[in-house]
C-alpha cells in the first residue's frame, strides 16, 4: 500500500509539472486481449489486470438497461473475488486488498471512446520461495478473452508471457 501511495505522489508530481493536466495518453486497447501485470518483491505481490469492457460485459458504453447494469455489476463482482488468479497453495499467499475500477461506463465519454475494467490486487505471501508459477484463468472467467498478456517482474528480472487458448500457467523464475 505504501508503494502505491508513493506512486500516486509521483504521478501527481509529474502531472503537476505538465502544462495541460487534461492530456491523457491512450494505452493499447485490443478487444479479446487482457493484460495482467504481476510484480513480486520479497513477500509482497502486486497484481494489476486490465480487460476491455467489450470482453467483460459485451459493450463499452454506460449501461442503458437493467440487464446491462447487471452485467457491469457481475463483472465487478467477478473481478473483486479473483478466483481466476490462482497462487500455489504452498506459497501461503493471502489477498490483502482488491480494487476494481471500471472506466468508460460512467456518464462522460472517456478519451478514445473505449471502456475498460482495471483491477488491482495486493497479496502477502508467507513462503514466497514456493511461488514458482501462477495460474491465470482470466480467459475462462471471461470467455470472450482470447489472449492474456502477462508481464512479470521478480528478483530474477522481467518477462512477458502470452497465454493463448487454454494455457493458464505462468512460470516464475525466482
Amino acid at each position: 500500500m505504501k508503494a502505491s501511495m508513493s506512486v500516486l505522489s509521483s504521478l501527481l508530481l509529474l502531472t503537476s509539472m505538465a502544462a495541460t493536466a487534461e492530456e491523457r495518453h491512450l494505452g493499447p486497447h485490443v478487444h479479446g486481449q487482457a493484460s495482467v501485470n504481476v510484480s513480486i518483491d520479497a513477500r509482497e505481490m502486486d497484481v494489476a489486470a486490465s480487460l476491455p469492457g467489450h470482453d467483460a460485459v459485451g459493450f463499452e458504453h454506460p449501461p442503458g438497461s437493467p440487464a446491462e447494469q447487471a452485467a457491469v455489476d457481475k463483472a465487478i463482482a467477478t473481478l473483486n473475488q479473483p478466483t481466476w488468479f490462482v497462487v500455489p497453495a504452498a506459497a501461503h499467499c493471502t489477498l490483502a486488498s482488491a480494487k476494481v475500477s471500471p472506466h468508460g461506463f460512467g456518464g462522460a465519454a472517456e478519451p478514445g471512446g473505449h471502456a475498460d475494467f482495471d483491477a488491482t490486487y495486493h497479496y502477502t505471501c508467507n513462503t514466497p520461495g514456493q511461488l514458482d508459477h501462477l495460474d491465470v484463468r482470466l480467459a475462462s472467467a471471461f470467455p470472450s478473452v482470447q489472449k492474456v498478456v502477462v508481464n512479470l517482474i521478480t528478483a530474477a528480472g522481467s518477462n512477458q508471457q502470452a497465454l493463448d487458448g487454454t494455457t493458464t500457467r505462468v512460470d516464475i523464475q525466482q
Binding site: A3, S4, S6, V7, S10, L11, L14, H25, G27, N37, S39, I40, D41, E44, M45, D46, A48, N151, I153, T154, A155, S158
Partner: peptide, 13 residues
Amino acid sequence: SRLSAFAVQSAIN
C-alpha cells in the same frame, strides 16, 4: 521496490 515497476513505467510513459 519492484512493486512500483508497472506504476513508474506507466508514469514515465
